[in-house]
């Protein structure tokens, strides 16, 4: 029984590796589906803006509020902008954006491709001489890989704005001096790392959602499972990747 489970797990891993390999093979093979890529960028990026704005702002505002008492004990509230900046740019913005996107975008991709699979729309594309992998998978993975980093930078900015509003209310710090402190606390490596890890997260969300949807079992239950597993697996992988990237960055800083 346990042996069977291990065997199934390795077969699944091999299938995922083949799926990722196929993505890179198709990525550079013409024809390119530019129109569909732009449509997917709109779906992933633009339509996620309201949710990302709200979560980014709330995270910045609440984090500032909760951090104040600890710093107040040492009379160090002037360090709040630096603390918020480091927390948001190094950890919160990429992680929160990725997790929110895994829930919103990943489940959407999983469910959409899953239901296309169930209703034979993917087969219909294939028999009409179109490469469904290129049209459906490549375009969506490119869109998430490009748009999640943009959303992450946007989320960081909105989070910093949330922090500013809170600080401005309590400490009367001006906009300019707040942002001077914010950018003084981070360096190029921090911004680069934020972009890099959100590219990895974006790719993960796209490829996991597409894999789950593309290989969903037939039936409505299969669609639900595809959507559900897209989120669960993406989130798990995002945490693992975050852990690894943090270790690598620590090494680079030393």
């Amino acid at each position: 029984m346990a042996l069977d489970k291990i065997k199934r797990m390795f077969i699944e891993l091999a299938n995922i590796a083949r799926f990722v390999g196929r993505f890179f093979k198709e990525l550079f093979n013409p024809p390119f589906e530019f129109k569909e890529i732009i449509r997917q960028c709109y779906e992933v990026g633009w339509k996620s803006l309201p949710l990302i704005s709200l979560t980014g702002f709330v995270v910045g505002f609440v984090f500032t509020n909760q951090s104040r008492p600890s710093l107040q004990e040492f009379g160090a509230t002037s360090w709040l902008p630096a603390l918020i900046s480091i927390a948001i740019i190094r950890a919160l913005a990429p992680l929160v954006t990725a997790l929110i996107s895994a829930g919103k975008v990943g489940s959407n991709i999983g469910a959409e491709l899953g239901s296309m699979n169930v209703t034979e729309q993917i087969d219909a594309m294939e028999v009409s001489g179109t490469n469904p992998f290129k049209f459906l998978v490549v375009s969506r993975v490119i869109a998430t890989t490009f748009m999640i980093p943009i959303l992450t930078f946007y989320s960081a900015f909105v989070g910093l704005l949330g922090g500013f509003l809170n600080i401005n209310q309590n400490e009367n710090t001006s906009f300019l001096s707040y942002f001077y402190e914010v950018f003084d606390a981070v360096d190029f490596l921090d911004l680069f790392a934020m972009g890099f890890r959100s590219i990895i997260f974006g790719f993960t969300i796209g490829i996991v959602g597409c894999y789950q949807g593309y290989h969903s079992s037939k039936g409505t239950e299969g669609v639900g499972r595809a959507a559900n597993w897209s989120v669960v697996m993406s989130m798990f992988l995002i945490f693992v990747e975050e852990l690894l990237i943090v270790q690598i960055l620590q090494g680079l800083r030393v």
């Binding site: 296309m116 209703t119 034979e120 729309q121 087969d123 219909a124 594309m125 294939e126 028999v127 009409s128």
Partner: peptide, 26 residues
């Protein structure tokens, strides 16, 4: 496959596209 037409049991029309876009697709 361009020389073979396949009419599916479920019709398999692309839900997110209009009829025009469905027909143009291939």
């Amino acid at each position: 496959r361009l020389r073979i037409g396949f009419s599916f049991q479920s019709s398999a029309l692309y839900d997110s596209m209009t009829i025009r876009e469905n027909l143009e697709f291939p």
